[in-house]
């Protein structure tokens, strides 16, 4: 079934690249660095210093990127706020956990516990913006962003809302890095962190998200379905942007026919749970600069599960 697309009205990021920067200024991260942290902006234009002092870095970045992207889209308060985070406010979780393990189960400070649930991000954005609309948080590891995007798309297609603020964020700490470093998945590229925001709308204009789905089954079946339901063939796809790390074998994306251009984005944002949100931002940046209509498939793979996001732009010139 061909469904109506939703449109990216604006996107923005705070990550290892210069905050809020665009494609022209993206530069590959140093390959020797084990962990590359966010380049934080001056938060004062977005959050009063008195308020931001009490916030952890992931909430601060999420609020700043949300305000930035809403300004770009010319929206004050979104109809819905949908968040994706792989591991949430892990810094506060670590502090509360260590206090409990070191000092026993007494005299614990509640403030770290309060901030440690993943939905702190989405609810703090809502409290800050005074947005009482739909609010949800997806936490499915490397596919937390895709879950949040799919829910956004469903609400927009149904017409339950006219616009959605979609925010994907993860933070990296020394403690978490020390644990993730044991897993091959996190090797070969700097481990990083980031917050990426989008304003999505069901009114036409801008880069379109035509389809989003993830599958634990055969990835080539799912790609075939996406192409068929959108009345497309492989020749209509200008590029496949994958979650591959630089130098990684593209074997897991063997279903992409030869001759289709393959691009990657993690050389710019590093590896983190919701990096695919940066991948979507990257697709949008590339499409906007083509000067003609185009189509990009964003494809990710982790532990045998694949996700696909089909994006397109229509040239109006």
């Amino acid at each position: 079934m061909k469904r109506s697309p939703v449109y990216i009205k604006a996107s923005s990021h705070i990550c290892a690249q210069e905050p809020f920067s665009t494609l022209e200024s993206f530069s590959p991260l140093p390959q020797d660095g084990a962990m590359v942290l966010c380049k934080d902006p001056d938060f004062r234009p977005f959050i009063p210093p008195m308020v931001s002092r009490r916030m952890n870095s992931i909430v601060k970045r999420s609020i700043a990127v949300s305000r930035h992207v809403l300004d770009k889209a010319g929206i004050q308060s979104p109809d819905a706020i949908i968040s994706g985070t792989g591991i949430g406010c892990v810094g506060d979780t670590e502090v509360f956990l260590k206090q409990m393990l070191d000092n026993g189960e007494n005299m614990l400070n509640p403030s770290r516990f309060i901030c440690s649930t993943p939905n702190t991000i989405g609810s703090q954005i809502a409290i800050y913006l005074g947005s009482r609309g739909f609010n949800s948080t997806h936490v499915n590891d490397m596919f937390a962003f895709e879950g949040a995007l799919l829910e956004s798309v469903m609400l927009l297609q149904k017409g339950s809302v006219e616009n959605v603020l979609l925010c994907a964020a993860d933070q990296m700490t020394d403690g978490l890095y020390g644990l993730l470093d044991r897993d091959a998945f996190w090797k070969g590229i700097p481990v990083s962190e980031g917050a990426v925001g989008f304003v999505l709308s069901n009114s036409p204009g801008g880069v379109a998200v035509d389809d989003v789905m993830l599958t634990r089954s055969n990835p080539s079946w799912e790609v075939d379905r996406i192409l068929r339901e959108n009345s497309l063939e492989w020749k209509d796809i200008d590029a496949v942007v994958t979650s591959l790390l630089p130098g990684e074998s593209s074997e897991r994306f063997a279903f992409v026919p030869e001759g289709v251009q393959m691009l990657t984005y993690k050389q710019y944002c590093g590896q983190y749970f919701t990096a695919s949100a940066f991948g979507l931002l990257y697709c949008g940046e590339v499409l906007q600069r083509r000067g003609k209509s185009g189509r990009i498939l964003l494809a990710s793979c982790n532990r045998g599960t694949y996700s696909f996001i089909l994006t397109s732009s229509v040239c109006t010139n």
Binding site: T137, H138, V139, N140, A144, R216, S217
Partner: peptide, 21 residues
């Protein structure tokens, strides 16, 4: 969540996890 999905006999082709406390 995947551990639960893997334990089922039906074909769980899609998982999502929601955490709103």
């Amino acid at each position: 969540t995947d551990a639960i999905a893997d334990s089922l006999e039906c074909d769980v082709v899609f998982t999502d996890v929601i955490s709103t406390a």
